[in-house]
C-alpha cells in the first residue's frame, strides 16, 4: 500500500495529481462521485477556458484521457469514500461501491460547488427565464447561438452582474471568488463574437482581473469587444411588461439611481465550499476553515497539507481557485504524497 496514493475527485486538480503520482512511479487510485471525469469544467459544460482560450472539453478532455489511458491509475466512478481507517503509510478506505482501497497517502481534490443563485432571490434567478448564471451562459455559448431563453430573440443587451454569491455578508459569503471578473470579461467577448449586435454591460464594484488577466481579458473585452463596465452593484432585478428585465442599481460615478432595461441578465456566480465538505471533513477526519473550505495546514513547510498527516489537498477545495492553479496544486499535492511514501520506504530500509 505504500506505493499507492488515493485521490478523491477527478477535476483538473485531481487529474493533475493522478498523472503526477504515476509519473513518479507510484500508483494512483482515483475516486470520483460522478459518473464521468473532468470535474466542473466538463460537468457544467464550460465554454472556452481562461486563460488558454481552449474549449474545456478539449483541454480538460486531454487530462481525462491521459488519466484513463494510464495503466498506473485505477478509477472508481460514481463512488464516494464512506469511511477511512489507518494513518499515513497505511490508510484503508471503504468506498460506496463496496470496494476497499488501501493507500499510503491521500489527496483531496474535492473542489467546490457553484453558488446557487436561488439564494439571492432579489436578483431574479428562478423568477425570470432570462436571468441565467455564468455556467448556463457558457453552455449557451457552447451551442454557438445567443438567444433569450424566454422566447429565443437575439438580445440587444446583456448585463453581467459580478459578485453573485461572493463578497456578501448578507448570505454569509465573505470571500472573493477570484475568477468571476475574468470569466465574465471572457464571456462578454464570447457573446459579442457570436452575436455582434448584442451589447454587453458588466456591473461591478471592483474589477479583479489579477496578474496577466488584465490586458488579455479586461482590456481586451473593453477595447476590442466594446464591453461596457458600469460601477454599480445591482440591488434588484424585475421585469417590465414588455418582458425585458429591469436592472436596478446606483451608478456610483454618476451618483444617481439607475433602472435600465436588459434582455438577458447573467449572474457571475461565485465558488462555494463543496456542499459535501461537512461529510468529507467527517470521513477523512480533517478540519474546515471558517468559511467551510478545507483547512490548510501551515503552508510554508507543510505545503498542500491538511490538519491530518498523510492527507493533502489542492485546488478549489482550499478556496476559490483558477483552473490553471488547481492543476499546479494538484501536481504539488501529489508530489507531497509521493515524498511522504518515499520517506517511509527510506526510513524502513
Amino acid at each position: 500500500m505504500q506505493d499507492t496514493v488515493l485521490i478523491v475527485g477527478a477535476g483538473p486538480a485531481g487529474l493533475s495529481a493522478a498523472s503526477t503520482v504515476t509519473a513518479s512511479g507510484y500508483k494512483a487510485v482515483v475516486v470520483e462521485k460522478e459518473e464521468i471525469l473532468g470535474g466542473a469544467p466538463i460537468i457544467s459544460g464550460y465554454a472556452k477556458l481562461v486563460p488558454s482560450g481552449e474549449w474545456a472539453k478539449d483541454a480538460i478532455g486531454r487530462m481525462v484521457s491521459r488519466v484513463e489511458e494510464d495503466s498506473g491509475v485505477t478509477i472508481h466512478k460514481g463512488a464516494k469514500v464512506e469511511s477511512l481507517d489507518g494513518e499515513v503509510g497505511s490508510f484503508t478506505a471503504k468506498l460506496s461501491n463496496g470496494e476497499t482501497v488501501t493507500a499510503g497517502a491521500i489527496v483531496l481534490a474535492t473542489g467546490f460547488t457553484h453558488f446557487d443563485s436561488i439564494n439571492k432571490p432579489e436578483w431574479g434567478f428562478g423568477t425570470f427565464e432570462d436571468v441565467l448564471t455564468t455556467t448556463q451562459m457558457e453552455q449557451m455559448v457552447s451551442t454557438g447561438k445567443i438567444a433569450c431563453p424566454s422566447d429565443g430573440r437575439v438580445p440587444e443587451r446583456v448585463a453581467i452582474l459580478l459578485c453573485v454569491g461572493s463578497r456578501d455578508r448578507q448570505i454569509g459569503r465573505e470571500w472573493c471568488s477570484k475568477i468571476c471578473c475574468t470569466v465574465s470579461a471572457n464571456l462578454a467577448m464570447e457573446i459579442k463574437e457570436i452575436s455582434p449586435e448584442t451589447d454587453v454591460f458588466i456591473y461591478y464594484m471592483d474589477i479583479r482581473t489579477f496578474g496577466l488577466y488584465e490586458d488579455k481579458f479586461y482590456w481586451k473585452s473593453q477595447e476590442e469587444f466594446k464591453t461596457k463596465f458600469v460601477k454599480a452593484r445591482i440591488a434588484e432585478v424585475t421585469a417590465s411588461p414588455d418582458g425585458r428585465l429591469l436592472v436596478k442599481g446606483e451608478d456610483t460615478l454618476v451618483k444617481r439611481p439607475i433602472i435600465i432595461p436588459f434582455d438577458i441578465v447573467v449572474h457571475a456566480i461565485g465558488m462555494d465550499p463543496n456542499e459535501d465538505n461537512p461529510e468529507i471533513a467527517k470521513v477523512f477526519g480533517i478540519g474546515l476553515e471558517k468559511h467551510g473550505f478545507i483547512e490548510r495546514a501551515e503552508h510554508y513547510t507543510n505545503t498542500c497539507g491538511t490538519t491530518r498527516r498523510g492527507i493533502y489537498s489542492c485546488g478549489a477545495a482550499y478556496g476559490p481557485e483558477t483552473i490553471d492553479d488547481s492543476i499546479s496544486q494538484g501536481a504539488a499535492a501529489a508530489s507531497r504524497a509521493v515524498a511522504d511514501l518515499n520517506a517511509l520506504v527510506q526510513k524502513a530500509s
Partner: peptide, 10 residues
C-alpha cells in the same frame, strides 16, 4: 452535477 444546480442549457 457536483458543480452546481445542474440545469443544463439546451
Amino acid at each position: 452535477g457536483v458543480a452546481g444546480h445542474g440545469s443544463f442549457f439546451q
